[in-house]
Write a protein that binds this DNA or RNA. Structure first.
Lengths: 110, 110
DNA sequence: TCGTAAGTTTCCATATAATTCAACTTTTTG
DNA sequence: CAAAAAGTTGAATTATATGGAAACTTACGA
């Protein structure tokens, strides 16, 4: 299973690279400064939850946590793990995308 | 590093996952989805680092951590916080974007 | 093939994210 | 308005991510 997954992982990576990366030339610099504001992430959770017409308690049930936890995630100024983000938006049937870009090329992570 | 013109018969990512992991919604599949994302995230760090011609040690110096830590991030031994992701890609002068999409609407988080 | 550089792993400590519970405040609604 | 529902907060706990040190393995150039 491990070997299998590893093999698949490499295939996936190669696919990704061949498709999206191609070759990248020389030096480059970041276009604009990027800053992720955690409040916005919390706002996103809230927005999507409202969109789905769920209370914090109901969303909590879907995920398996108390409403207080949802509240904290929504108004959170703290750091969050990827796992938590995925868990929440999955329950909300929303798709999360992470991408990394250098220069013109964009590498989709998920 | 990036292999060009590598003609191989391979399944699409979704095909692979459906065939070898199980259908969407199963525990196995969900777990794999998460692991896949994490693994690919590590691969992205590695790819961009290589692109910048940096060793793990050099990247570590930029961020202020040991090379072992970079190794761990690239090999995804753990879950990762947003802060860590941002820190790494910032050092690599790469731009990270998170976005959430549900149905037709897409909400940019950053 | 030897030596060095690069990368990995293990053990461990510390910081902090995730979470609950219960009391509290705010909002909704009958 | 008063009750109920929804949301917030703080204190405490648990789980785990971050990180260093050092030994180890792998890659690689002379």
């Amino acid at each position: 299973m491990v070997t299998k997954n590893k093999k698949m992982k490499m295939m996936t990576l190669d696919q990704m690279k061949d498709k999206d990366i191609g070759k990248i030339g020389t030096v480059e610099r970041d276009k604009y400064e990027f800053e992720l504001r955690m409040e916005v992430l919390g706002d996103m959770i809230k927005s999507v939850r409202k969109e789905r017409n769920l209370t914090q308690e109901q969303l909590g049930e879907l995920i398996g946590v108390q409403k207080s936890q949802i509240s904290k995630l929504e108004r959170n100024t703290k750091n969050v793990t990827i796992e938590t983000i995925l868990k929440v938006f999955k329950a909300l049937k929303a798709n999360v995308r992470f991408s990394v870009e250098m220069n013109e090329s964009e590498f989709k992570v998920a």
